[in-house]
């Protein structure tokens, strides 16, 4: 009797597992064939999916940011170096005080955020790791692949100072950076 009941329980369990496996296989097939997941950037994520991805990102960054990261002293030189990086690599997607992102950034999904309150959202180590390691499936590159740790630390230093600038100060800083980059011949021209 007991053995018979156990056997029936076993077959029932096996049937349940097989049904779940079949259902999972069908869902996976529907995803892989492009039927139930639209990868176009015109289609916003569902609220639950978008929320889940965002929370996962926040927690993943936090977990990887428990140790120490490189820091540079806040001097005029390091901040100008960071500003130069920000102007060259960051501002098109992230904008700045009084400065919009490039128009095409609004065509990205997820769309890159403005960073004026980034230092209140993220710790120093988190900002460093976000810049250094990038963020999968967002378009944020791992800048650590192409820049030195010091350069990453410099841009993070600038990020942490940027919210303290007025839009006018930020505009003057950008003018100065552009003047720096202008070829010597035009700068010295009469």
């Amino acid at each position: 009797m007991i053995a018979d009941g156990t056997r029936r329980l076993f077959w029932g369990w096996l049937l349940g597992v097989a049904t779940c496996a079949l259902a999972a296989a069908i869902v996976v097939a529907l995803i892989l064939s492009g039927i139930i997941f639209n990868t176009s950037a015109t289609q916003p994520h569902s609220k639950v999916f978008g929320w889940g991805m965002h929370v996962t990102m926040i927690n993943s960054v936090a977990r990887r940011s428990r140790g120490d990261v490189p820091t540079v002293p806040l001097t005029r030189e390091t901040l100008m170096a960071g500003a130069r990086q920000y102007e060259a690599h960051c501002i098109v997607c992230h904008g700045g005080p009084g400065v919009a992102r490039a128009q095409w950034a609004s065509g990205m999904l997820p769309t890159p955020p403005y960073l004026i309150d980034a230092p209140t959202r993220w710790s120093h180590a988190e900002l460093y790791n976000l810049v250094h390691d990038g963020v999968k499936m967002t378009g944020m590159p791992a800048w650590g692949e192409v820049e030195s740790d010091r350069q990453v630390a410099e841009v993070v230093a600038f990020l942490e100072v940027m919210p303290k600038m007025t839009p006018d100060q930020f505009a003057r800083l950008r003018q100065r950076l552009r003047a720096e980059q202008a070829p010597q011949s035009t700068r010295g021209a009469p």
Binding site: G107, P112, Y114
Partner: peptide
């Protein structure tokens, strides 16, 4: 959403 208004 697309204009990232929510970041500010």
């Amino acid at each position: 959403g697309r204009q990232a208004c929510g970041s500010c």
